[in-house]
Design a protein around this nucleic acid. Structure first.
Length: 589
RNA sequence: GGCUCUGUAGCUCAACUGGAUAGAGCAUCGCACUACGGAUGCGAAGGUUUGGGGUUCGAAUCCCUACAGAGUCACCA
């Protein structure tokens, strides 16, 4: 909240106590921004106090308003409308805030580094035989953005992913490559490694389906071969392991290229082939401590019915691990790797909500108190106009294709608008990425993560209206103004306290100044959409203000300086906010 | 069937977590126009917040209920 809000909160409580003889509970005090159609900037809702004052809302508001004007230096006037007490703050208050924020420079809105507990964020974690698609883009952008937001809020963040590099699915691709591949490699085919392996996964499926009518689903020869290969892999067969490493290597090269394009990164990688066995020991410990129970058939279960959940299998009767077993092991491994870790955040689709509820309960049951602080960053599916993406129907939107399309669209729009004359040839590819990827990231992140969202590939993404490029365009314009004013370091701007600001300017300032609160809230809720919406609010207000408030042409030098500062603050706040979404802002476009 | 989530303008999304007359963008129509960068700004039109009850000064938001959609409830991952 704004600095003034703390003061107002306290003053309202003190005022009630003095005027009405008893103080309201802190939770009853609500200070919010005044709606633009009314005079003033901050509003106190007075209904809760009528019980104390035993007066009408209007009289209560008036009494409180008079008290606040008398006792708070920055409150210069008030107005009561129905049960709402609207307060006008002094120009000097806003100038002070503006000076403070501009003085903080690029650090405005950011908490000191590592001033809060260490958090691990897991995201991406793809299957290694399918290329990345649109759903992964939402996952990656979300995970990356939440990591950046947590950092900005002062947490030390460790970005990780678990790579699903073993199992029957990998063996399927390997079998198909041996049978049909004729030694094809990324180099020989010119295909990206992940695409090449994906191609053989599809080839396997095709061959398998052809065999099913004659042999049945469970006895198709090619499936038996894959199972045989999985056995060999588990027994460490050197040839199988070598092939496995070769093909996974191709996939990683392909994925890395895509991650680089997306602008996401990881501090540490976990591989399922290294962690899939470690959960069993933890399950054994759980049996010993009484957290889990072993049944007569040898299977192991956890009973969570007292927590409103079900019983869940942790080890099969033959002693082999299930998915949950691995996740328990991996989670505990991570707590061991990072002893200071306060919690883990898992960026995984909402179809696994139940799984993570169970996982966190189990961690608590095993004595890890971090369990109750862990968070499943659950997100909804990205749907197409014709419904869900289905590989069988060929409606999967490939990540690399989409990124390329965004670059091309950015270029086409720039050419169409005749914007490239002043952009050196060498800088253009980078610019098209900034604009194209900015549009895509903003589009995917401005929606509340938990909601499923609609993506229309044919309509593509607009570059006007509430879009990434609109924010970039206004950023570029404000940077241009600052350049023309020869302002290299805006922290040196210092606004005279005698400048008078109009209502539009105060409202704009109020919006931009809320960046620190919004970052904190977004970190608390693990929700980048709040940051995206703030960036839009600032930009929209800025653009409207810019239209009829001359900056460079303003003749009053104090006012000119103040407007330059507003310009600097808005552009800096939006740049910071957008960087938390993984969107980089061009200087020219 | 049990549990979870969602339902807001023609479409895509907001609404400070219970506050004032529910706001933006797109699309439609109109206005500004040699613009400190027009990838702009302003305005019009568009709503019984899925229906029905309830709680209270006050509900898109909380409770109950009906309806619609999604997910989940595997010795799958």
């Amino acid at each position: 909240m704004l600095r003034i809000d703390d003061i107002l909160n306290a003053a309202v409580i003190a005022g009630c106590s003095e005027l009405f003889g008893s103080a309201p509970d802190a939770s009853q005090v609500s200070v919010q921004r005044t709606r633009p159609e009314f005079e003033g900037e901050r509003t106190v809702v007075v209904f809760p106090f009528t019980r104390l004052s035993k007066k009408s809302p209007e009289d209560t508001g008036t009494a409180l308003g008079e008290y606040l004007v008398a006792n708070c230096d920055d409150v210069i006037a008030f107005q009561v409308v129905k049960g709402f007490l609207n307060l006008s703050l002094s120009d000097s208050y806003w100038i002070n805030e503006l000076n403070g924020a501009v003085g903080a420079g690029a650090g405005f809105g950011l908490q000191p580094k590592a001033s809060k507990p260490q958090v691990m964020v897991e995201y991406s974690s793809p299957n290694t035989n399918k290329p990345l698609h649109l759903g992964h883009l939402r996952n990656n952008f979300l995970g990356y953005s939440v990591s950046e937001i947590l950092k900005a809020a002062g947490h030390d963040v460790v970005k990780v992913q678990i790579i699903n590099d073993r199992g029957i699915h990998i063996c399927k691709s390997m079998v198909a490559w041996l049978k049909f591949g004729e030694g094809e490699t990324p180099e020989s085919s010119g295909l990206k490694g992940d695409k090449l392996v994906g191609k053989y996964y599809v080839a396997f499926d095709k061959a398998y389906k052809a065999e099913v009518p004659d042999h049945g689903e469970d006895n198709a020869p090619i499936l038996l071969e894959a199972r045989e290969m999985l056995h060999k892999w588990e027994n460490g067969d050197p040839e199988v392991r070598a092939l496995w490493q070769k093909m996974n290597g191709w996939v990683y090269e392909g994925f890395d290229a895509t991650y680089t394009e997306m602008g996401v990164d990881f501090d540490k990688l976990y591989y399922e082939s290294n962690t899939y066995l470690i959960g069993k020991d933890q399950v054994e410990k759980g049996i010993a401590s009484g957290a889990f129970t072993k049944r007569d058939d040898g299977s192991v279960w956890v009973d969570l019915t007292d927590r409103g959940l079900d019983e869940k299998l942790l080890l099969r009767s033959d002693g082999t691990a299930v998915y949950m077993t691995q996740d328990i092991g991996t989670a505990i491994l991570r707590f061991e790797d990072y002893p200071a870790l306060d919690r883990q955040v898992y960026t995984v689709g909402n179809e696994q909500e139940y799984h993570f509820k169970v996982l966190f309960e189990i961690l608590s049951k095993l004595g890890f108190d971090q369990g109750e602080r862990c968070h499943h960053l659950s997100y909804g599916m990205v749907e197409l106009p014709e419904g869900k993406m289905k590989s069988r129907e060929g409606t999967v939107v490939d990540a690399d294709d989409l990124l390329a399309e965004m670059r091309e669209t950015a270029e086409a729009v720039a050419v169409e608008a005749g914007k490239l004359d002043n952009i050196p040839e060498a800088d253009r590819p980078e610019l098209f990425k900034q604009v194209g990827y900015g549009a895509l990231k903003y589009f995917l992140l401005r929606v509340d993560p938990k909601k499923s969202m609609m993506f229309d590939p044919k309509g593509s993404i607009d570059f006007i209206g509430n879009t990434g490029p609109y924010l970039q365009f206004n950023y570029v314009r404000s940077r241009s103004v600052l350049r023309n004013a020869n302002i290299e370091d805006s922290t040196s701007l210092n606004i005279s306290p005698i400048v008078s600001l109009d209502q539009t300017e105060k409202a704009l300032l109020m919006t931009a100044l809320s960046l620190p609160d919004i970052i904190e809230e977004a970190a608390r809720l693990y929700d980048p959409s709040i940051v995206a919406n703030l960036c839009y609010d600032i930009t929209k207000s800025y653009s409207s203000w810019y239209q009829d408030h001359p900056i460079l042409k303003e003749e009053d030098s104090d006012l000119r300086e103040a407007r330059l500062a507003i310009c600097a603050l808005c552009s800096s706040a939006v740049k910071t906010g957008m960087s938390l979404l993984g969107v980089s802002m061009p200087e020219r476009m």
